[in-house]
Every structure is written in C-alpha cells, then in structure tokens.
Design a protein around this nucleic acid. Structure first.
Length: 751
DNA sequence: GTGACAGCATGTTAA
DNA sequence: ATGCTGTCAC
C-alpha cells in the first residue's frame, strides 16, 4: 500500500478535498482541463487505500477506452485491486446477463444497434397497416428511443400521445417491443431502461445492488439521461456515496436524451451533497481559454464560471480563412507537415475536429497527397462494412437462434435461391405460428407455398446454422472461420469477378484476426462477449493514441481528450452551428458548447478554419463563416488570417463571395478581418453556383398543387437541404424541401 | 420466382 | 456511397 501522502501530494486543495471526501453524495463541477479524470482515479485509489473493498466500488466512464485506462491506473496506484469500471451501456448489459434469471430474461440476448432497430421499426410500422405514413423508420425509432430514455413503456407513451405523429409512434412502439422480445434482442436503450425499471420496481433487487455497489462514481454526469439517472439514484439510497463529476458547459448529447438538469439539480436530489468546483485549468494557454470563455459566455442558459490558468498566454487563437473546402483541407495538412518539419511538434500532437463525419473525405485525399500519416477515428467503421456485418450476423444467429434481423440478413447471402416471395411466405408462416424465422425454416415442409429452390435453400440454411450451433463454445475467431467456410461466404467472394470482392475477402480475414486478438486479450471470452464488445464499442475505442499520426474525429468524439495542436474545420453557418439547430435557441446553445468542447481540447495552439465556398453533395455553394467566430474576443488573443488570396484562381470568386454573403455575415466582418478585394475575373467566377433567387421568403404567398394557396412561415437550411414551411388555410403547416417542392411563388406580402 | 441491374432518394452528432 | 424499389431476363 502506498503512503496516503503519495496519492495526495501533487493535488491542489480543491482536488484533495474531492479525493478524500469520505461518505455521502459529492458533486464535482469540473471545468475543462481541470484534471477531473485524475481526481476520479485518485479518489478510487484513495477509497481502496482506506480499506474499501474493490468489489463495492463502481466507476462509470463515457467510453470503454476511458474505462480501461482508469482500471489500469487504479491498479498501478493500488496494485492488486481490480475495480469495476465500465460505461453505462456495458454495465447494463452485464447486469442483465448476470441477473437474467432473476429478471426473467434470456441471458443470450443479442444487442441491436440503430440499423437493426430501424429494420424492426420498419417491420412494426408495416404491420400497423399504415404504410402510407411518411414517417421514416429512423424518425420513429428515434422517438421510441427517446421514450425509453424517459422510462416510458408503450402503454405509458400511448397515454401521452396527443397528435398524429406521437400516436403513430405509440402504435409502432407496441409492435416494435413485441418484435424485440420475440427476437430475444435488446436495443441500446434497453441496456439502460431495463436495469432502471428493475431497480425501480424490484425493491429486493435494488437493495442488493445498492449494498453491492456502496461507492458509485460517474464521470461526464452532464450527459446522463433519465434512465441513467434512475440507475445512479436507485443505487444510492441505502449507501448514498454517489460521486458525480461533470461540467454543464460540456453537455453535448441532449439530442440523444441527455438531460442537463441531472447535474444542475444534483443538490436538490441530494440535499446533503458536498459541492466542489474545480476551475483551475492545467491544459491550455491563456489565449485558448480566453477565446473559449468568451464564446461559452454567450450562452444564456448558463451559470457563469470562468476558467483560470497559470499557463503562459501562448500563441493567439488563429481564425484561418480559405477559399474553398479543398484548399482548407490541404492548407491544414500542409501546416501540420511544416510544423513537424520545423521540429515544433510531432504528427501525433495534432488533432483535426469536424462537425460531421462526411467532411473527412476531402481531408483523406489531402493527407495521402502530402504523405502525412493520419487516423480517422471512427472505430466502428470496420465492423460496419457490409461483408463484416454479414459474417457477424451469422455469428449472432448462431448464438441466438431467435435473432430474426440477422436471419433475414444472411439467409440468402450467399444466394441459396431464397428470394423475396419465399421469404414473405416464411415470414407470414412464422408470424401465424409465433415462432422465430429459423424455427420456421426447419418446418418448411409445413409451408406448401414454398417449394423447389426456395424450400431446399431454407432447409440447407437451417442445417448450416444448426451445425454451427454445436460449435458455439469455440473461441470467436475459430467460429468465424467456420462460418465463412461452411456458409460459402468465403467462396462467394473468392469466385467473384468484382474486384471489390477481393477487398471484402481481405476484410473478412481481418475480422478473424480482430476476433483472435480479442480472444487473446480476454481468454475466457465467448462469442457473445465478442459481439457485445463490438456493438458497444465507442468511436474512440479504436483510436491508436500511441502511433505518430494526425487524429481526425468529430467534435463529439473529442470530448475528454486533449492535444497540443487543434484544428477545427468548417466553422461555418449550417455546419457549426448545424443548420438543424437554427432558430432553436436551446439547440444553438448546445452547438456552442460543442464548439467550446473542441476549443478547450487544445493545449498550445488552436486554429478555427472556414472556407468561402464548400462543395456539398456535388454542389458548390457559398459558405458563411460561423456566427461563433464573431463571438470570439476582439483582442490580441485571436488573430485572423486570410489564406484565400494565396491562390490566384480564388480572386474573382472571393470578390463575388463578399458581395453575396458578406452582408449576411456582418458579425464576422466586424471581427477585424481585412477583406481582400481583388480585380474581377468573371470567367472564373462563372464556375460558381449561385443559388437562384426563387422568391421564396417568409411571408411569400405560394401556390401548391394539392393544398392550394398558402403563406411561407419559415425557411431553414441552405442548398439541397433548404426547407420551407408553409401554412395552408384548412391544411395547417407543411414543410417542404425547397428544391423539390412544387411551389409557385404568386406574390408576397410586405415584409 | 429469383436475381441482376438501374434509378432513386437519402444523408448530424452516437452507445 | 448506401440501401431500397422497380424492371427485366432467365
């Protein structure tokens, strides 16, 4: 056991107070870069050192990677002590499997991701007979997810449904749940919702777990949802040693159900709570903090809190203006390359953050072109490839024969002569008999409408899966190997003429390798564990921190990380803040927090980039600098650098751009950028698509083929995503895609 | 009835 | 780029 002094020696008074806080609820409001990970880790170590048994400590982190790191650090501080550290979702999955008998569930359940969920939603929607409803499965699934996050059962939700959409959701929700249970599957929300319900309704279960986990620590508490809150709260009744750490300014997951009130109301929920605020920042320069602080200060729904640091002022935050998105990508890559060449930084010191994944593509080519090593941090991408999803579907079906989504995915891959018609009949039969599709396939003889190739194909498939089921105890990689050989999947790819199939074959082999690696690291693991690990992996879990490359990720993924040099790209209206937030103050504030999170990842240098033109879905459009740029301080902490003039071709375009969009971006122009006014070059500017003036404006009167005369009440988005809202007397408000809608402007009201 | 193909709409952030 | 739908030849 180390001396307690060792654990506490290098901490500030506030940090020490948080670490040594004995019993009772504790709220740590930890500003960005204030060393919160360190505080939690030390606190766990300190508790162990005080004689708390490792098994009675539960620590919850935001990613599996963070969980692994914390487990290791604790073990290093207090050797021989393994504590339970996991994410909320992994915790839920583990509890559900561990207590399956008590909770009346089958412990071999499959975890469905969003794609799987949407397939079931689609099926449930079709079964309601409301096929003509134009709500997408994704949207309905999202609503169901939100309902589960708020612990609403289908019946509970139905009672609150008060319009056509929510009533549709209620109907679909019923059917969706039925299908999930029939498939012995859990969606992501179930992993939180079911434990939360069990803790709420089953007092004995609750009491057992409460005394099992006497000390509960939760990181990133500002991003917990109602189900997670319920779990935390119910585990802290008899032993209210709940320690939560978070920062309301970094709450960026409201869209997936997180409720910032959980952290804001902690003191109300636990009146005895001690509150410790950490505002000293150890990460960033004064300039970075000053700029980020000015930005976040614009949020109205916010308790004022200023971060302070003893670090030097450092370089100014730089706002970089590029002519277009390709210039931006290359400009950033070249700057990084030069910084490395000059010996100022290594590649791994750099990170590039983006608002949306789609923007990584142009970066990729710039990296390749300049020979700069990079990693796009999106761990799941590999497992999301079609071929790997197929192979994993086999695995899932073998592990859980009720998994109908997986059945449908692979029953005819490779082709076994089971087409749509045969499948429809099989599905109808299985529905009548209330049995899983695989079981129905076994009884294909009872379905006279399926004959010939279809019948024999289903029989073969059933035999294949049954055969593989006897091998379920093999290590995951060996079972995968059997799957791809015996199913004929490997042969199908090898015999194909399509050159892409060679890549697919390589990916499948790589999947075997990944499974083997997983099994080497977790020798006791079985197929179900491997599948679970893949499904619950976070994007950053696959990130290789140690390698010397530039890291590229979304702003959301960047939470919790830090880098010496940070570039945030495409800081433009419509992207950051994202257009979907426009007009909704709460959502814009979340976008601002997102920007704040990105900025505060930077230790030494921070660059915010934007381009004047950006290609989006094949269309080159003018881009307006983000209003957030206009909210940065107007002092020496921020420097504006216009790099667009370095390209001759840009000159005419830059001029026209200014004329078109500068008035709309007055905020930005006021920041002190000195515009470069080049001579006109119309022949070059001609390649720029100027969105035609459609006459659509709020107040305009429009004619629609079906609804008749209406008035425009709202416009949002731009380019292909531009939406127009129209109020029709007698039909209410309708939203159209501006490009596509058959709307004729017939006049306008003054306005 | 099956499967290959083209044409189509679709697209924020994520466990 | 992807998945879904409709069309067409076997």
């Amino acid at each position: 056991m180390p001396d307690p002094g060792d654990l506490l020696a290098d901490l500030t008074d506030d940090q020490r107070a948080a670490v040594t806080h004995a019993e009772g609820p504790l709220l740590i409001l930890a500003g960005a870069g204030s060393g919160k990970t360190r505080v939690i880790t030390r606190r766990v170590a300190y508790l162990l050192q005080q004689g708390v048994r490792p098994g009675s400590i539960l620590a919850i982190t935001f990613t599996n990677k963070a969980a692994g790191e914390m487990r290791q650090r604790v073990e290093k501080l207090v050797p021989g002590n393994r504590v339970w550290v996991s994410t909320f979702h992994s915790l839920g999955a583990r509890l559900l499997r561990q207590y399956a008998d008590r909770l009346g569930i089958d412990r071999n359940f499959t975890i469905y991701d969003t794609d799987d969920r949407n397939k079931l939603v689609k099926d449930a929607l079709a079964a309601t007979g409301m096929d003509d409803v134009k709500f997408s499965p994704d949207r309905l699934g999202g609503a169901i997810s939100k309902a589960k996050n708020q612990l609403l059962t289908p019946n509970g939700y139905e009672k609150t449904a008060n319009d056509f959409f929510t009533q549709t959701v209620a109907k679909v929700y019923h059917g969706y749940e039925k299908r999930l249970r029939a498939a012995n599957a859990m969606d992501f929300d179930d992993l939180l919702y079911l434990p939360a319900q069990a803790l709420r309704l089953n007092e004995e279960f609750r009491r057992d777990l409460d005394s099992r986990f006497r000390y509960v620590l939760i990181d990133e508490y500002q991003d917990t949802n109602s189900a997670q809150y319920e779990v935390a709260r119910r585990l802290s009744v008899d032993h209210p040693n709940l320690c939560v750490v978070g920062d309301p300014d970094q709450s960026i997951y409201k869209w997936r159900g997180s409720d910032i009130k959980n952290i804001l109301d902690f003191e109300r929920d636990f009146p005895a709570a001690r509150v410790i605020t950490l505002t000293r920042n150890y990460r960033s320069t004064k300039n970075v903090l000053h700029a980020a602080g000015a930005l976040i200060d614009r949020n109205k729904q916010r308790k004022k809190k200023a971060l302070v640091t003893d670090n030097p002022a450092g370089e100014p935050v730089r706002v970089l203006t590029f002519d277009n998105g390709l210039d931006e990508a290359e400009g950033v890559v070249v700057r990084i390359k030069e910084a490395v060449k000059a010996g100022r930084f290594r590649y791994r010191d750099h990170a590039i953050f983006l608002r949306i994944n789609a923007l990584t593509r142009s970066l990729e080519s710039a990296f390749v072109k300049h020979g700069v090593p990079f990693q796009i941090v999106k761990g799941l991408a590999f497992f999301e490839r079609k071929e790997n999803r197929d192979v994993l579907a086999y695995l899932r079906l073998v592990a859980n024969p009720q998994d109908n989504v997986s059945f449908l995915r692979v029953v005819n891959a490779p082709s076994r002569g089971v087409g749509k018609t045969s499948l429809d009949r099989l599905v109808a039969f299985a529905g009548r008999e209330e049995m899983p599709l695989l079981a129905a396939a076994a009884q294909v003889a009872r379905i006279p409408e399926i004959k010939g190739k279809g019948a024999s194909g289903l029989r073969d498939f059933y035999r294949l899966v049954t055969e593989l089921r006897t091998k379920l105890d093999l290590p995951p990689h060996e079972l995968i190997d059997l799957v791809i050989k015996q199913s004929g999947y490997e042969k199908m790819l090898r015999d194909s003429d399509d050159p892409e199939d060679a890549d697919r074959l390589a990916n499948v082999s790589e999947l075997v390798t990944a499974a083997k690696q997983y099994h080497d690291e977790n020798p006791d693991s079985k197929v179900v564990d491997f599948l679970e690990q893949i499904t619950l992996a976070s994007d950053t879990d696959g990130w290789d921190e140690a390698a010397d490359h530039v890291s590229v990720m979304t702003l959301h993924s960047s939470k919790g990380l830090e880098f010496p040099v940070v570039y945030v790209m495409a800081v433009e209206e419509g992207l950051l803040p994202h257009e979907r937030s426009l007009g909704k103050d709460e959502d814009v504030e979340e976008e601002r927090r997102l920007c704040f999170v990105g900025m505060t990842r930077a230790m030494k240098e921070l660059h915010l980039c934007h381009a004047r033109m950006r290609e989006f879905r094949g269309q080159l459009n003018y881009a307006i600098p983000s209003s957030f740029l206009g909210e940065l301080p107007r002092d020496s902490s921020v420097e504006h650098v216009d790099l667009s003039m370095t390209r001759n071709v840009a000159r005419g375009a830059a001029d026209e751009w200014r004329a078109k969009v500068a008035p709309a971006a007055r905020d930005w122009a006021d920041t002190g950028v000195r515009p470069f006014i080049p001579p006109k070059k119309p022949e070059e500017a001609a390649s720029i698509v100027v969105p035609p003036d459609t006459g659509l404006a709020v107040g305009a009167l429009v004619q629609h083929d079906e609804y008749g005369l209406g008035q425009v009440t709202d416009l949002s988005g731009f380019g292909a995503l531009r939406r127009v809202k129209v109020r029709f007397p007698g039909h209410g408000e309708k939203v159209f895609v501006a490009d596509k809608a058959k709307l004729k402007v017939v006049g306008r009201r003054q306005g």
